[in-house]
Every structure is written in structure tokens, then in C-alpha cells.
Design a protein around this nucleic acid. Structure first.
Lengths: 354, 354
DNA sequence: AATACACTTGAATACGCATTCACGTGGGTC
DNA sequence: GACCCACGTGAATGCGTATTCAAGTGTATT
């Protein structure tokens, strides 16, 4: 029966030093004489000692843990982002506590309180809504947080998104330039600013060309709803010749409904443009033209922003929008002379406290 | 500038009670008079008090945190499993700390030590290898752990998998019954027992029918390798008329290579059977016949097993294999009279300490 | 009326570590 | 040779909570 719990005091005793010296050996930046370092490390190795992170956190006030709240992983953009975020945080010495919450303000608020009780150093809210009272609470407690892939009306809230309006605009511009006359939109969830921004950009591009959307149907970021929307669009006497879909996850359902169920040629009869550029978009079955949300850059920006607040005490920096280039593939007709590298510019919107 | 940190002592002062009384109010099972409960709750609410989980864990020795080590989320089986595991643990009052580790024993060992330093109550190792020394270490420290979707040679290690051998056997049986004569296998990673078990079952079924596999090529659970394997199979003078693929993630690549690149009809010229039944397998683009690994049941079993060790002190229970039924879809010819509900039996293999 | 008992409560303490603080010790400077 | 200073070290203390333990209250029992 081996020792139940090895503490710094045990190591100290074995190495013939004091407990604080053991602590210093395991605290980068502390100065300890080389011989004691060696003795302590040797003793620690023999005993199998590991510093208790909880005790450490309790008196430093830093847990090196980041809480992340997610709505779901069904949309493959989130697994991609989650893994990258985790790896970035790991590289900076942080761990990630992952919690799923349905996208209800009430539930998210409870989850966030839970994370705060766990003394996380910061919180990432990925694609979930939070109540204003919670936002206030986080601010008062100066708990660092960043919204990931989810903006809110208040542009002063720290958030990292892609340039959704610009991306939607680019999608619209692209489809108009492709000579499409009846362009429909299967929109994202209307309670999501992401979805509304993409839609607004899309509509602006069409308006600028003197067009208006053939139809706009909410897809709620769900496959089944998007498939149903597609059926509805093609039950019309004047079906669309192009569809801009609010994200790739829905676009796959739209494509499948068009091809397997409605027998429409893509892009011959209908062009389809998505949003996200998840890995699957490049697979042969879909070959989807789409706007790329660069998960890697978004994760980098999120980590930088959050750790800036935590470690450097940076003030919350408002919303950061990452450039969202159009990736040309085979699901949409490519206009003559369309540049291969068209992209919407990235930009930082400084928050103006409402 | 609001209070920096509200402690139980602050609440106690405001409510006119002692700190232990506050503690008791927030500790289910402790008896406190109703009026004091009310006073304490009121004061806590006004101050915005949340018990510090770190301090609590420090002297209870229980963190209510589970560490989970994952190799990647690229195979969609893992996001599905991750979300279900998280929800199950949440329901039992536990949080999940997620860490990614390349599938190298060395790295996994380091990550696990890291989790132990964080005082997790238990660890789930999802599809990663660990060294024998680490296994020993975990046993000595009596740190509960369960291998998820990854068995090891030592059947006494607590693990939850599907019935991989039986599943592979069923796949082989099914393809033989379908009248296929040249059955190939794109195998999983050879260092994974999952992959080897599926292969062994498959080979046994063929052998029983007097056949032997046309070819077995390692796919390493990777899309690109699987696609290349498919090309190699069809570069032969005697290409296969059926392929059993080690998991769905690879099977999608095989299907796409067959259809988009090689122009082979599925299931007309080639039948394809996968393994996992991830959500995408049911999508029209793939419509993949496959063996279901029931993520939900596997997660339930894992949670039950791990929390049994943590809360009830159960002894590690050996490997548990969950039934893995064959899901009939359109990617493989269905033999005449094949039962619609064929399934491999689930079974518990008691560990015999080597 | 006296004792026993169930119940509630606060003072003290422990959990494992990091961090003051004060105390040497040695080498360098004039 | 006296002084100063940088450095290494251990004793003591605090982080915020849960858990002894003993004391106090009131009710039931004899």
C-alpha cells in the first residue's frame, strides 16, 4: 500500500530542507542553490511528488484554468475551434474546462456562475447568449471573458468573430456577378448576430446591384430546418437559381436535398454558397464554395485577447472581426474574371461604451 | 469599485453567524436552523457570494472534476462522445477538463500527470495509448481511470469499447452473405486494439466461409491514407467487390474516392461497410451501411464505471464491450433474407489480472 | 425535579502550498 | 578591518473552506 498523498513537506523531510524550499524549487523564478535543487528534485522523483495545483491556486489566486461554454458540437466548426483553442491554451500553460449549455440565457448564466465558483481565470463563451445582468456581473467582478463566434449588440463587449457583414456582402456580390437573377437565402438563427450580420451584408450587396432576395427563410443553423427550407424554395413557381446559406452545416443539407431529393444540378441549375469553410466543405461530396472563418486565426485572437486581460490586465478591447475570404470551389458558378483571392478586409471595431 | 472577493466570512459577518454556519448552509446534508439558513442565503445573495470550489476541494480531497484526454476531434465520433460524456457528468455534478494529446505514450503520460496535479477525481483516456509505467502509477495512487473506445492487451484494465471483434465478424459475415467474392479491408491503425479486433473478427468470418481477404491495407484511421488505399485496391487487376472499412471517417473517404474519382457504382460494383455510425453516416451523400458504436450507451457505461470507482470505491471492473449492431443502409448490397435487426451481443469481459 | 438526549452553533484547526519576513553567510568595497 | 549588500534559507502566516470538538439550548424521560 503506497503513500496516500505526497506533500511538499514529505519531500522537504526526505531532502533535508524546509517546505518553502521545495516550493521554490517548483516555482520558476525563485532562486535556490543548485545542490538543494538537485536534492529536492531527487527526493520528489523518488516519492512521486506532484505539486497540488488546487492549493497553489488557492493562495496565488490564479488557477490557470479557462472555462469555455459551448452550445453544441454538431456544427463541425466547433470541434475544430475547440481543439485549436485547447492547444493554444495548453501552449500557454492553461487548461480548459468545457461545459455545454443550451442556448438559453438562464442556463448559460448558471453555467458561468459555476465556472466562477471554480475560480477560472477567464471564460470563453462560444456561440451562446448571456443575459445583460450576467455581463454586468462579470464586469463588476472583473472576470475576463471573450465571446467567440458570437457578437452582441453592445460592440464594446470583447468578442472575436469573422467579418460577417463583409462576408455576407461578398457572397451576395459574388452571386450577382455570376449572373444569378433569383437569389435566395437560407438564413442563420435570427437570434444570432452572426446570422443577422451575414444576412444584412448579403442584402446590401443585392440592393447595390438593384436586386432583392427572391426569398429569405430562417434555417436556425439546423440541418433539418435548412432541408425543409430548400424544399419550400423549390416548391415555388419561380425557384431560385442561387442560394446563400448561413453556414456550411446547413449548406450540406441544402446540397443534399437539391441533389438527392430534388434532382437539381449544382452549379448548373443552382449555385450554393456556404459560410465557415469547415474541413468537410473541401470533401469531394460537397466541394462547397464558401466563406472561410479561419478557426485558427480566430482562436489565436481569442487566446491573445483573453490572456491579455488576465496576464497584462488589458482593458476589454471590443469586437475583433477576422477577415473572411471567399473560397472558390465547385458548388457555385464562378463569374468571368473573378479574382482568385477576393477577400473581405479584417478590421477591429473599437468598442464605444454605449 | 466592487468588493474584490467575497468569502464565507464576509457572508457570516453580514448575516450575524459564524463562518462554519455559512459553510453548512452550502453543504447539503448539514443541519442548520431555518431562520439562519434564510439569513445566510439572503446575505449571500446580496453580496453575490459563491463558495470557492478550490478551497472546498482542498480539504475534502474531492474536486468533482474529471480529466479527459483526447487525441483529436477530426473523427466525428469523438465530438459526439465528448458532448454526451460532458452532459452525463454535468448531471452528476462533475466538470470536465479536456486535454488533447498526440497519441504518443510519452505525451499522454505527461498530460495525465498534469491532470493528477490538478487533483481530478478520475480520468478518461479516449483513444490514446498510455505506458505501462503510467498504468502502474495510476493504480498505486488509486486514481480511477477508464479507457474509452480503446482497449489494451491487458483486459483487466477498465475500458469501455464496442464489441469490436463481434462487429468485424458481423461485417465479414454480412458481406459474404451478400455474395461478394473479393472482399478487401481498409484497416484501422495497427497500434489500436480497436482496429486489430475489428480486423480479426472480419478475417474470422471470411475464414469460416472458406474465403480469405482480397487485401488488407492499413488506413491508420486517416482520410488521406484511406483514399490512397482505395486507389491502390483499384489499381489491381482484380479489384475488390466489397470493402470493409475500419471506421466511418475513413469510409467516407473511400466512398468519395470510389464515386468521384474512380467512377465506381456503390453498391452496384462495390459494397462498402463502415464502423461507428456517426451522424454523417445517415446523410444522403453517404448513406453508409455501418456498425453502430452507440456513443450514448458507451458514455453512460463509462460514467457509471468511473463514478462507481470514485464514489463507491468499486474495484476496476475490466473491459466492457457494448453491443454493436449493423445498421443497414444503401452502401452495401443486402443479402436476401438478412434479418433487419442483426446485432452482435454485448458482453462483459471480466478482467483476469495478468 | 433531575438526568439524558437530540440538536444547533461557534472556536479552533487542517487541507497543501506560496509568500512575507527576518536571519545568517559570504564576498566585495573603502 | 569595518561596513554594506546580495543571496539563500527557514519560521511563521495566509489563502477559503470543511470538519472536528465542546458548549449551549431545549425537550423528553424517569
Amino acid at each position: 500500500m503506497p503513500e496516500a498523498r505526497i506533500t511538499a513537506a514529505d519531500v522537504a523531510r526526505k531532502a533535508g530542507v524546509s517546505q518553502p524550499t521545495v516550493s521554490r524549487v517548483f516555482t520558476p523564478g525563485s532562486r535556490v542553490s543548485p545542490d538543494k535543487v538537485a536534492r529536492v528534485r531527487e527526493a520528489a522523483r523518488e516519492l512521486g511528488y506532484l505539486p497540488n495545483t488546487l492549493a497553489r491556486s488557492l493562495n496565488t489566486g490564479r488557477s490557470y484554468t479557462i472555462g469555455i461554454v459551448l452550445a453544441y458540437l454538431t456544427n463541425p466548426f466547433y470541434p475544430e475551434a475547440l481543439q485549436i483553442l485547447s492547444e493554444r491554451f495548453s501552449a500557454r500553460g492553461y487548461h480548459m474546462m468545457v461545459i455545454f449549455a443550451q442556448n438559453l440565457e438562464e442556463e448559460v448564466d448558471g453555467v458561468v456562475e459555476n465556472l466562477m465558483a471554480h475560480q477560472v481565470d477567464g471564460i470563453i463563451l462560444a456561440s451562446v447568449s448571456m443575459s445583460n445582468s450576467l455581463t454586468e456581473r462579470l464586469r463588476e467582478l472583473s472576470m475576463p471573458f471573450v465571446l467567440f463566434n458570437r457578437g452582441q449588440e453592445d460592440r464594446s463587449l470583447p468578442a472575436v468573430t469573422s467579418a460577417n457583414y463583409a462576408g455576407g456582402y461578398l457572397a451576395g456580390q459574388f452571386l450577382v456577378a455570376g449572373g444569378h437573377q433569383r437569389i435566395a437565402h437560407v438564413a442563420g438563427w435570427q437570434k444570432s448576430l452572426n446570422g443577422r450580420d451575414r444576412q444584412a451584408g448579403f442584402e446590401a450587396a443585392l440592393a447595390e446591384a438593384g436586386q432583392s432576395p427572391l426569398a429569405i427563410i430562417e434555417g436556425a443553423f439546423r440541418r433539418d430546418v435548412a432541408a425543409e427550407a430548400t424544399r419550400a424554395l423549390f416548391a415555388r413557381p419561380d425557384p431560385p437559381d442561387a442560394i446563400f446559406v448561413g453556414n456550411d452545416h446547413m449548406a450540406f443539407a441544402v446540397l443534399e436535398t437539391l441533389q438527392s431529393e430534388l434532382g437539381r444540378a449544382v452549379p448548373g441549375e443552382v449555385s450554393v454558397v456556404g459560410y465557415d469553410d469547415v474541413a468537410m466543405a473541401a470533401w469531394p461530396s460537397y466541394d462547397l464554395t464558401t466563406l472561410r472563418q479561419p478557426a485558427s486565426e480566430m482562436a489565436d485572437a481569442t487566446v491573445t485577447m483573453l490572456l491579455g486581460m488576465i496576464e497584462a490586465g488589458d482593458a476589454p478591447s471590443g469586437r475583433l472581426e477576422i477577415e473572411s475570404p471567399l473560397i472558390l470551389r465547385g458548388s457555385a458558378r464562378i463569374p468571368e474574371g473573378w479574382p482568385r483571392d477576393a477577400a473581405s478586409p479584417s478590421r477591429l471595431i473599437q468598442g464605444d461604451p454605449k
